[in-house]
């Protein structure tokens, strides 16, 4: 299936559906514990990662904490 991930097209071969947890692993997302996931414009609850399925054509945004700025 083809997904749009942070604006780029990503192809995941050999499957037509994965849940969010599996998608994070498959796409080798850094620090999956602390990433916020927006699926087709809606921010997902972390508890729903295991039960939310991603399918062909979906648009995903992985949003990361960025804390610097002061010191």
């Amino acid at each position: 299936m083809k997904l749009t991930v942070n604006g780029e097209t990503r192809e995941i071969a050999g499957t037509e559906s994965l849940n969010i947890d599996e998608t994070l692993v498959t796409l080798k997302v850094a620090d999956p514990l602390y990433v916020t996931v927006e699926l087709n414009g809606t921010i997902l609850e972390r508890e729903a990662f295991g039960t939310t399925q991603v399918k062909d054509g979906d648009v995903l945004e992985f949003l990361y904490f960025m804390g610097g700025g002061g010191q």
């Binding site: 990361y64 904490f65 960025m66 804390g67 610097g68 700025g69």
Partner: peptide
């Protein structure tokens, strides 16, 4: 927020 080469 900023870190390394990224900002938001």
């Amino acid at each position: 927020g900023i870190l390394r080469f990224d900002g938001q």
